[in-house]
């Protein structure tokens, strides 16, 4: 987004909040839709008490551990599957069968095996976010120009050097496309795994669930806003890292 669109976005957000506040003040919308003022003051209270951060921290811990696993395994296996044909053939049927499955359906099974624990949640997030990263990496490797590999071989590079110094950088733009999708899914599944299953523990999803059961929509809005903020923030971080690593690429934006 360029500067001009950013300005428009800011104006749009302010206008929407103003309309919401006006409708709430005039009591034209039901009370359960709360108002920006109430949501804002609730958020402030939760920030001051530190409650928001403890919940956000445990949500983030689950998300980031999963994302790290996705990044490492997705890229390593994706490169292996893209570069070594037998490895690619080996993984293909697993990807074909498992990729279209709504992984959330595995939650009840994982819960029976691992209990209602972080293991279950991290595993579920990992299973969901793994495939986009793996598939994009593999596609990226397939898209590397043959002459790059040949030129490296010509200069005496070993298999490992080719993988590390040619295949990896050349497929990095595609890998980042996949990582961006994976990161988005990480937060979706973080929320979902916290929503379904249990009502005790820490996490932004739990906060929503608890608020829901208490009928406190204002608190729900606070949690939703915070989840959205985290999703947005980490997407920005990923894009910044991408711009740094892909400074040479035409589509670094």
């Amino acid at each position: 987004m360029d500067k001009r669109l950013q300005k428009i976005a800011a104006i749009e957000i302010v206008v929407l909040l103003a309309i919401w506040q006006a409708l709430a003040s005039l009591e034209w919308i039901p009370a359960y839709l709360s108002s920006p003022y109430v949501v804002g003051s609730e958020m402030w209270a939760l920030i001051v008490s530190g409650e928001l951060f403890t919940n956000a921290a445990s949500s983030l811990y689950r998300s980031l551990v999963s994302f790290l696993l996705v990044m490492v395994l997705g890229i390593v296996l994706g490169i292996a599957a893209g570069f070594f044909k037998p490895v690619g053939i080996f993984f293909q049927p697993i990807v074909d069968v498992l990729n279209p499955v709504p992984k959330i359906a595995l939650l009840p099974i994982l819960m029976v095996w691992f209990g209602i624990s972080d293991t279950t949640r991290i595993l579920l997030i990992f299973l969901t976010a793994f495939f986009p990263c793996f598939i994009a990496t593999k596609d990226g490797v397939h898209g590397v120009k043959q002459v790059f590999v040949w030129a490296a071989e010509n200069m005496g590079a070993s298999k490992f050097q080719i993988l590390w110094k040619v295949i990896l950088p050349a497929s990095l733009p595609k890998i980042f496309d996949g990582l961006r999708v994976s990161l988005g899914l990480t937060f979706v599944m973080m929320f979902s795994s916290e929503m379904i299953g249990s009502s005790n523990g820490l996490g932004l999803g739990f906060m929503i669930l608890l608020a829901d059961m208490a009928g406190r929509t204002d608190l729900m809005f606070v949690s939703v806003f915070f989840i959205a903020l985290l999703g947005f923030l980490f997407d920005r971080i990923l894009l910044a890292v991408r711009a740094r690593l892909l400074w040479w690429s035409e589509n670094r934006g």
């Binding site: 950013q6 428009i8 976005a9 979706v188 932004l204 829901d212 989840i227 959205a228 920005r236």
Partner: peptide
């Protein structure tokens, strides 16, 4: 465009409990 750019990276399902309320 700004709405879609801003909304794209956020986990929109988090809105679901509120939708249920409405």
């Amino acid at each position: 465009q700004p709405i879609f750019s801003l909304g794209f990276p956020i986990p929109r399902v988090a809105l679901y409990p509120i939708l249920v309320f409405i």
